[in-house]
Design a protein around this nucleic acid. Sequence first.
DNA 1: TGTTATATTGTAATGATTACATATTATACT
DNA 2: AGTATAATATGTAATCATTACAATATAACA
Lengths: 144, 144
Amino acid sequence: MKILENIEKKIKMTPQRAAILKYLEGNTSHPSAEDIFESVRKKYPMISFTTVYNTLQTLKDLDRVRELNIDDERKRYDPNVNLHHHLICNNCKKIVDIFIDFPLDISEEEAQGYTISCRHVEFYGLCPKCRKTKNKGQGNRNRD
Amino acid sequence: MKILENIEKKIKMTPQRAAILKYLEGNTSHPSAEDIFESVRKKYPMISFTTVYNTLQTLKDLDRVRELNIDDERKRYDPNVNLHHHLICNNCKKIVDIFIDFPLDISEEEAQGYTISCRHVEFYGLCPKCRKTKNKGQGNRNRD
DNA sequence: TGTTATATTGTAATGATTACATATTATACT
DNA sequence: AGTATAATATGTAATCATTACAATATAACA
Ligand SMILES: [Mn+2]
Ligand SMILES: [Mn+2]
Ligand SMILES: [Zn+2]
Ligand SMILES: [Zn+2]
Protein backbone atom coordinates (compact mmCIF):
# COMPACT_ATOMS: atom_id res chain seq x y z
CA MET A 1 0.00 0.00 0.00
CA LYS A 2 1.51 3.31 -1.11
CA ILE A 3 0.93 6.24 1.19
CA LEU A 4 -1.03 8.20 -1.43
CA GLU A 5 -3.01 5.26 -2.80
CA ASN A 6 -6.68 6.17 -2.79
CA ILE A 7 -5.97 8.52 0.07
CA GLU A 8 -8.41 11.25 -1.01
CA LYS A 9 -11.21 8.72 -0.55
CA LYS A 10 -10.10 8.04 2.97
CA ILE A 11 -9.48 11.48 4.39
CA LYS A 12 -10.62 15.03 3.74
CA MET A 13 -7.85 16.63 1.74
CA THR A 14 -6.44 19.95 2.88
CA PRO A 15 -3.39 21.92 1.81
CA GLN A 16 -1.65 21.03 5.05
CA ARG A 17 -2.29 17.33 4.65
CA ALA A 18 -1.26 17.47 1.02
CA ALA A 19 2.02 19.10 2.01
CA ILE A 20 2.68 16.52 4.69
CA LEU A 21 1.85 13.68 2.30
CA LYS A 22 4.06 15.16 -0.38
CA TYR A 23 6.93 15.36 2.07
CA LEU A 24 6.40 11.80 3.22
CA GLU A 25 5.89 10.15 -0.15
CA GLY A 26 8.97 8.14 -1.03
CA ASN A 27 10.84 9.64 1.92
CA THR A 28 13.38 7.20 3.33
CA SER A 29 14.84 9.46 6.02
CA HIS A 30 12.53 8.29 8.82
CA PRO A 31 11.72 11.83 9.94
CA SER A 32 10.55 12.89 13.37
CA ALA A 33 7.40 14.98 13.80
CA GLU A 34 9.65 18.00 14.12
CA ASP A 35 11.47 17.18 10.88
CA ILE A 36 8.14 17.05 9.10
CA PHE A 37 6.96 20.26 10.73
CA GLU A 38 10.13 22.17 9.86
CA SER A 39 10.09 21.01 6.27
CA VAL A 40 6.43 21.62 5.58
CA ARG A 41 6.66 24.99 7.28
CA LYS A 42 8.90 26.29 4.52
CA LYS A 43 5.98 26.16 2.12
CA TYR A 44 3.19 26.62 4.67
CA PRO A 45 4.60 28.90 7.36
CA MET A 46 1.24 28.93 9.12
CA ILE A 47 1.04 25.19 9.72
CA SER A 48 0.66 24.06 13.30
CA PHE A 49 2.71 21.41 15.04
CA THR A 50 -0.54 19.92 16.26
CA THR A 51 -1.66 19.42 12.67
CA VAL A 52 1.45 17.38 12.00
CA TYR A 53 0.74 15.16 14.99
CA ASN A 54 -2.95 14.88 14.10
CA THR A 55 -2.17 13.93 10.53
CA LEU A 56 0.38 11.36 11.61
CA GLN A 57 -2.20 9.83 13.93
CA THR A 58 -4.70 9.69 11.08
CA LEU A 59 -2.16 8.07 8.79
CA LYS A 60 -1.22 5.57 11.45
CA ASP A 61 -4.88 4.62 11.88
CA LEU A 62 -5.08 4.03 8.13
CA ASP A 63 -1.81 2.07 8.18
CA ARG A 64 -0.20 4.52 5.80
CA VAL A 65 2.62 5.29 8.15
CA ARG A 66 4.59 3.26 10.64
CA GLU A 67 5.76 4.69 13.94
CA LEU A 68 9.27 3.65 14.97
CA ASN A 69 10.48 3.55 18.57
CA ILE A 70 14.02 2.89 17.46
CA ASP A 71 15.29 6.37 18.41
CA ASP A 72 15.40 6.88 22.17
CA GLU A 73 14.78 10.63 21.97
CA ARG A 74 11.77 10.93 19.70
CA LYS A 75 9.36 8.96 17.61
CA ARG A 76 10.28 8.51 13.97
CA TYR A 77 7.90 7.94 11.10
CA ASP A 78 8.20 5.69 8.08
CA PRO A 79 5.88 6.06 5.07
CA ASN A 80 7.00 2.63 3.92
CA VAL A 81 4.75 0.20 5.75
CA ASN A 82 5.96 -2.85 3.88
CA LEU A 83 7.94 -5.36 5.89
CA HIS A 84 11.54 -4.29 6.29
CA HIS A 85 14.17 -3.73 8.94
CA HIS A 86 16.44 -0.91 10.09
CA LEU A 87 19.97 0.10 10.80
CA ILE A 88 20.53 3.04 13.14
CA CYS A 89 23.59 5.11 13.90
CA ASN A 90 24.19 5.27 17.63
CA ASN A 91 25.70 8.72 17.21
CA CYS A 92 23.58 10.77 14.80
CA LYS A 93 20.51 8.50 14.85
CA LYS A 94 20.38 8.25 11.09
CA ILE A 95 18.15 5.33 10.13
CA VAL A 96 18.46 3.37 6.92
CA ASP A 97 16.36 0.55 5.53
CA ILE A 98 17.32 -3.09 5.25
CA PHE A 99 15.25 -5.14 2.85
CA ILE A 100 16.24 -8.66 3.76
CA ASP A 101 13.86 -11.42 4.64
CA PHE A 102 15.49 -12.94 7.70
CA PRO A 103 14.32 -16.34 8.95
CA LEU A 104 12.59 -15.34 12.17
CA ASP A 105 10.07 -18.06 12.72
CA ILE A 106 9.72 -19.29 16.26
CA SER A 107 7.81 -22.21 17.67
CA GLU A 108 4.64 -21.88 19.70
CA GLU A 109 6.62 -22.82 22.78
CA GLU A 110 9.23 -20.19 22.07
CA ALA A 111 6.44 -17.64 21.60
CA GLN A 112 5.38 -18.31 25.20
CA GLY A 113 1.71 -18.08 24.42
CA TYR A 114 1.98 -14.79 22.56
CA THR A 115 0.23 -14.29 19.24
CA ILE A 116 2.87 -12.69 17.07
CA SER A 117 1.77 -10.11 14.56
CA CYS A 118 5.03 -8.61 13.39
CA ARG A 119 8.78 -8.81 13.58
CA HIS A 120 11.42 -6.14 13.38
CA VAL A 121 15.19 -6.40 13.32
CA GLU A 122 17.26 -3.46 14.53
CA PHE A 123 20.94 -3.15 13.72
CA TYR A 124 22.88 -0.60 15.75
CA GLY A 125 26.22 0.83 14.83
CA LEU A 126 27.98 3.85 13.41
CA CYS A 127 27.23 5.42 10.07
CA PRO A 128 30.14 6.15 7.69
CA LYS A 129 30.08 9.88 8.44
CA CYS A 130 30.11 9.43 12.22
CA ARG A 131 32.83 6.80 12.07
CA LYS A 132 35.15 9.30 10.38
CA THR A 133 34.51 12.06 12.90
CA LYS A 134 34.31 9.66 15.82
CA ASN A 135 36.82 11.36 18.11
CA LYS A 136 35.79 14.90 17.42
CA GLY A 137 32.24 16.09 17.97
CA GLN A 138 29.92 13.48 19.45
CA GLY A 139 26.22 13.13 19.94
CA ASN A 140 25.29 15.23 16.97
CA ARG A 141 22.00 14.29 15.43
CA ASN A 142 21.73 13.62 11.76
CA ARG A 143 20.66 16.64 9.74
CA ASP A 144 20.63 15.31 6.21
CA MET B 1 28.72 -10.36 33.16
CA LYS B 2 26.25 -10.57 36.04
CA ILE B 3 24.90 -7.29 37.31
CA LEU B 4 26.40 -7.76 40.79
CA GLU B 5 29.73 -9.18 39.64
CA ASN B 6 32.51 -7.21 41.27
CA ILE B 7 30.15 -4.27 41.46
CA GLU B 8 31.35 -2.99 44.85
CA LYS B 9 34.75 -2.40 43.26
CA LYS B 10 33.20 -0.31 40.55
CA ILE B 11 30.80 1.93 42.42
CA LYS B 12 30.39 3.33 45.90
CA MET B 13 27.83 1.13 47.57
CA THR B 14 24.88 2.78 49.29
CA PRO B 15 21.66 1.36 50.72
CA GLN B 16 19.71 2.88 47.82
CA ARG B 17 21.96 1.34 45.22
CA ALA B 18 21.94 -1.97 47.02
CA ALA B 19 18.15 -1.95 46.99
CA ILE B 20 18.03 -1.11 43.30
CA LEU B 21 20.57 -3.82 42.49
CA LYS B 22 18.70 -6.35 44.58
CA TYR B 23 15.51 -5.52 42.71
CA LEU B 24 17.23 -5.80 39.35
CA GLU B 25 19.23 -8.96 39.96
CA GLY B 26 17.68 -11.80 38.02
CA ASN B 27 14.66 -9.64 37.23
CA THR B 28 13.16 -10.58 33.87
CA SER B 29 10.25 -8.14 33.89
CA HIS B 30 12.04 -5.34 32.03
CA PRO B 31 10.92 -2.67 34.49
CA SER B 32 10.62 1.02 33.81
CA ALA B 33 12.31 3.58 36.04
CA GLU B 34 8.98 4.08 37.76
CA ASP B 35 8.57 0.35 38.37
CA ILE B 36 11.97 0.31 40.05
CA PHE B 37 11.19 3.42 42.05
CA GLU B 38 7.84 2.09 43.29
CA SER B 39 9.28 -1.25 44.26
CA VAL B 40 12.37 0.04 46.03
CA ARG B 41 10.26 2.66 47.79
CA LYS B 42 8.46 -0.04 49.77
CA LYS B 43 11.67 -0.73 51.67
CA TYR B 44 13.23 2.72 51.37
CA PRO B 45 10.35 5.20 51.42
CA MET B 46 12.79 8.09 51.32
CA ILE B 47 14.45 7.15 48.05
CA SER B 48 14.38 9.76 45.32
CA PHE B 49 13.31 9.22 41.74
CA THR B 50 16.48 11.01 40.70
CA THR B 51 18.55 8.38 42.48
CA VAL B 52 16.89 5.70 40.41
CA TYR B 53 17.72 7.53 37.20
CA ASN B 54 21.25 8.30 38.37
CA THR B 55 21.89 4.70 39.31
CA LEU B 56 20.50 3.43 36.02
CA GLN B 57 22.83 5.80 34.19
CA THR B 58 25.78 4.54 36.20
CA LEU B 59 24.86 0.93 35.51
CA LYS B 60 24.46 1.68 31.82
CA ASP B 61 27.92 3.23 31.75
CA LEU B 62 29.30 0.06 33.32
CA ASP B 63 27.31 -2.13 30.91
CA ARG B 64 25.46 -3.76 33.76
CA VAL B 65 22.08 -2.76 32.43
CA ARG B 66 20.62 -2.42 28.97
CA GLU B 67 18.16 0.30 28.08
CA LEU B 68 15.31 -0.80 25.83
CA ASN B 69 13.39 1.55 23.54
CA ILE B 70 10.91 -1.16 22.70
CA ASP B 71 8.06 0.46 24.68
CA ASP B 72 6.79 3.65 23.07
CA GLU B 73 5.77 5.26 26.36
CA ARG B 74 8.80 4.84 28.57
CA LYS B 75 12.28 3.40 28.67
CA ARG B 76 12.59 -0.11 30.02
CA TYR B 77 15.61 -1.64 31.68
CA ASP B 78 17.08 -5.09 31.41
CA PRO B 79 19.70 -6.38 33.87
CA ASN B 80 20.51 -9.16 31.45
CA VAL B 81 23.05 -7.67 29.07
CA ASN B 82 23.79 -10.91 27.29
CA LEU B 83 22.65 -11.15 23.70
CA HIS B 84 18.98 -11.96 23.47
CA HIS B 85 15.78 -10.73 21.85
CA HIS B 86 12.32 -9.65 22.94
CA LEU B 87 8.66 -10.23 22.49
CA ILE B 88 6.30 -7.41 23.50
CA CYS B 89 2.56 -7.29 24.01
CA ASN B 90 1.02 -4.48 22.00
CA ASN B 91 -1.67 -4.09 24.62
CA CYS B 92 -0.11 -4.31 28.11
CA LYS B 93 3.52 -3.83 26.99
CA LYS B 94 4.68 -6.92 28.84
CA ILE B 95 8.12 -7.89 27.53
CA VAL B 96 9.52 -11.42 27.59
CA ASP B 97 12.91 -12.74 26.58
CA ILE B 98 13.73 -14.82 23.53
CA PHE B 99 17.01 -16.68 23.67
CA ILE B 100 17.45 -17.76 20.09
CA ASP B 101 20.50 -17.11 17.98
CA PHE B 102 18.97 -15.93 14.71
CA PRO B 103 21.13 -15.74 11.59
CA LEU B 104 21.39 -12.01 11.14
CA ASP B 105 24.62 -11.55 9.27
CA ILE B 106 24.56 -9.03 6.50
CA SER B 107 27.13 -8.19 3.87
CA GLU B 108 29.20 -5.06 3.85
CA GLU B 109 27.13 -3.79 0.98
CA GLU B 110 23.91 -4.45 2.83
CA ALA B 111 25.34 -2.61 5.82
CA GLN B 112 25.63 0.50 3.64
CA GLY B 113 28.92 1.53 5.16
CA TYR B 114 27.72 1.22 8.75
CA THR B 115 29.86 -0.51 11.35
CA ILE B 116 27.41 -2.78 13.13
CA SER B 117 27.88 -3.32 16.85
CA CYS B 118 24.69 -5.07 17.85
CA ARG B 119 21.48 -6.62 16.63
CA HIS B 120 18.09 -6.88 18.23
CA VAL B 121 14.98 -8.67 17.11
CA GLU B 122 11.61 -7.43 18.31
CA PHE B 123 8.49 -9.53 18.08
CA TYR B 124 5.19 -7.74 18.58
CA GLY B 125 1.91 -9.38 19.39
CA LEU B 126 -0.56 -10.08 22.14
CA CYS B 127 0.24 -11.86 25.38
CA PRO B 128 -2.00 -14.74 26.49
CA LYS B 129 -3.75 -12.64 29.11
CA CYS B 130 -4.54 -9.78 26.74
CA ARG B 131 -5.73 -12.11 24.02
CA LYS B 132 -8.38 -13.48 26.39
CA THR B 133 -9.67 -10.08 27.46
CA LYS B 134 -9.17 -8.57 24.02
CA ASN B 135 -12.66 -7.13 23.54
CA LYS B 136 -13.13 -5.82 27.05
CA GLY B 137 -10.71 -3.35 28.60
CA GLN B 138 -7.97 -2.22 26.26
CA GLY B 139 -4.72 -0.39 26.60
CA ASN B 140 -4.06 -1.54 30.12
CA ARG B 141 -0.43 -1.73 30.98
CA ASN B 142 1.04 -4.83 32.47
CA ARG B 143 1.20 -4.75 36.27
CA ASP B 144 2.68 -8.17 37.06
C1' DT C 1 38.05 9.96 63.52
C1' DG C 2 38.56 13.22 59.84
C1' DT C 3 38.76 14.20 54.96
C1' DT C 4 36.95 14.25 50.63
C1' DA C 5 35.13 12.76 46.57
C1' DT C 6 30.91 10.92 45.40
C1' DA C 7 25.98 10.05 46.05
C1' DT C 8 21.30 11.51 47.48
C1' DT C 9 17.63 14.50 47.70
C1' DG C 10 14.03 17.89 46.43
C1' DT C 11 12.87 20.91 43.23
C1' DA C 12 12.95 23.14 38.93
C1' DA C 13 13.63 22.85 34.00
C1' DT C 14 13.24 20.60 29.63
C1' DG C 15 11.33 18.51 25.65
C1' DA C 16 8.17 15.55 23.29
C1' DT C 17 3.58 14.65 22.94
C1' DT C 18 -1.40 15.25 23.90
C1' DA C 19 -5.71 17.74 25.26
C1' DC C 20 -8.80 21.22 24.47
C1' DA C 21 -11.44 25.17 22.92
C1' DT C 22 -12.12 28.14 19.04
C1' DA C 23 -11.85 29.35 14.24
C1' DT C 24 -11.72 27.63 9.59
C1' DT C 25 -12.86 24.94 5.64
C1' DA C 26 -13.77 20.82 2.48
C1' DT C 27 -17.56 18.48 0.97
C1' DA C 28 -22.23 17.59 -0.03
C1' DC C 29 -26.76 19.11 -0.70
C1' DT C 30 -30.01 22.43 -2.21
C1' DA D 1 -23.63 29.50 -6.57
C1' DG D 2 -25.09 29.48 -1.73
C1' DT D 3 -25.59 27.08 2.63
C1' DA D 4 -25.12 23.57 6.18
C1' DT D 5 -22.28 20.73 8.76
C1' DA D 6 -19.01 17.62 10.09
C1' DA D 7 -14.21 17.40 9.91
C1' DT D 8 -9.91 19.82 10.25
C1' DA D 9 -6.49 23.48 11.65
C1' DT D 10 -4.80 26.43 14.97
C1' DG D 11 -2.85 28.30 19.33
C1' DT D 12 -2.33 27.49 23.82
C1' DA D 13 -2.18 24.93 27.90
C1' DA D 14 -1.49 20.54 30.14
C1' DT D 15 0.86 16.21 30.78
C1' DC D 16 4.43 13.03 31.36
C1' DA D 17 9.03 11.11 31.26
C1' DT D 18 13.43 12.47 31.86
C1' DT D 19 17.32 15.61 33.03
C1' DA D 20 19.65 19.58 35.37
C1' DC D 21 20.99 21.74 39.43
C1' DA D 22 22.24 23.13 44.01
C1' DA D 23 22.32 21.91 48.77
C1' DT D 24 23.02 18.18 52.05
C1' DA D 25 24.61 13.68 53.42
C1' DT D 26 27.64 9.78 53.48
C1' DA D 27 30.87 5.72 51.94
C1' DA D 28 35.49 4.84 51.46
C1' DC D 29 39.91 5.40 52.84
C1' DA D 30 43.82 7.26 55.24
MN1 LIG E 1 12.18 2.20 6.87
MN1 LIG F 1 15.48 -9.16 28.22
ZN1 LIG G 1 25.92 8.79 12.27
ZN1 LIG H 1 -0.62 -8.15 27.25
